[in-house]
């Protein structure tokens, strides 16, 4: 499901879907004791697309728990080089106050001499809210996740590099990385470490069941790195020790179909009874026929007994 959505992310992310809403009340409010927080983040995702996310929330200065997510604010995402601004796209904030934009892998970015991409998110001022801007500088880091069994030891190998203007791979160092096992509802941290000279390896000794096909989804994450931002990489591998599958019986007391003997018994009982009803009715019809015959025949003297 995830990958499906990501394939159309660009479109989907800017299409505004309707919120089903039964009630809403608008009221004017004094915003002076709210301070607005405008946070901009970027993640390079497993399919090498880049997610830009802005969170735009007003916090009450007196009561930090009282927050007002800004809803429906148009956020522009830009790629800046020197004084030039290239519009990447725009999106509206959700009820949580977040606006997102997903840029596909083949998106070209303008980079400065050091290889930094300068990204900017902007909210244009309205009568009530003033202009907000935030920018991030990131380098495009390539993270390769390699899962293989070396001497029958399950080994996770990570390589991290950037590509310079000549197209050469340049390994990077000193990157903290987390290795996770992705499951249906959460990620389980199985290892943490640091990438040195462009690589990091980790031997997986623990065994996990994985999904029903025996697949594990391993992901590696670099978080909020000053130079590279956030990068996620993930892969599937046949390392699971499949759990014994509990298969339900199709003919039990709680399934749709009943145990066979129940059908048999019930049919026998019902048939037995209803055949008898029919037999009775047939006999009644015979009695009636006889009665009708008597009536049509000329009156005779009957010996009743």
């Amino acid at each position: 499901m995830k990958s499906n959505l990501y394939n159309h992310t660009f479109f989907i992310s800017i299409i505004a879907a309707l919120l089903l809403c039964t009630n809403g009340i608008a009221q004017q409010i004094d915003l002076s004791n709210y301070s607005m927080r405008f946070v901009f983040k970027t993640v390079k995702q497993a399919d090498n697309s880049r997610l830009l996310e802005v969170s735009f929330i007003g916090f009450n200065d007196a009561d930090r728990k009282d927050k007002l997510p800004v809803f429906g604010a148009e956020i522009q995402f830009l790629n800046v080089l020197n004084d030039e601004e290239i519009i990447l796209g725009s999106s509206k904030t959700s009820k949580e106050g977040t606006a997102q934009l997903i840029l596909l892998e083949n998106q070209k970015y303008a980079t400065d001499e050091q290889g930094y991409i300068n990204l900017k998110a902007r909210f244009n001022s309205t009568d009530a809210l003033s202009i907000e801007e935030a920018d991030i500088m990131v380098k495009d880091l390539h993270l390769d996740l390699n899962l293989s069994e070396i001497d029958s030891v399950k080994t996770v190998t990570l390589t991290a590099f950037t590509i310079n203007s000549l197209g050469d791979k340049i390994p990077v160092s000193d990157l903290d990385v987390i290795i996770n096992l992705n499951t249906m509802l959460s990620k389980m941290n199985i290892n943490e470490g640091t990438i040195i000279d462009g690589t990091y390896t980790f031997e997986m000794t623990e065994s996990f069941s994985g999904n029903t096909k025996g697949e594990l989804t391993i992901s590696s994450i670099i978080e909020e790195n000053d130079e590279y931002g956030n990068i996620i990489q993930e892969k599937k591998v046949q390392w699971g020790t499949i759990n014994k599958q509990v298969k339900f019986n199709d003919h039990s007391l709680w399934t749709k179909a009943a145990p066979i003997w129940m059908y048999v018994l019930l049919s026998i009982l019902l048939l037995g009874v209803y055949i008898n009803f029919i037999y009775t009715i047939v006999n009644l019809v015979k009695i009636k026929r006889e009665g009708d015959n008597i009536k049509t025949e000329p009156k005779k003297n009957y010996t009743v007994y």
Binding site: L5, T9, I12, S13, I15, A16, A17, L18, L19, C21, K41, V43, Q45, L51, E53, G72, S91, K92, T93, S94, K95, E96, T98, A99, Q100, I102, I178, N180, S186, K187, N189, I221, E223, E224, N230, I232
Partner: peptide, 20 residues
């Protein structure tokens, strides 16, 4: 530390529906 990443991944579904 991972919270944001998780949020980002998970909300990417919901955000689509809730921009209105």
């Amino acid at each position: 530390r991972r919270k944001f990443l998780k949020l980002g991944l998970l909300t990417s579904f919901t955000a689509i529906a809730s921009t209105s």
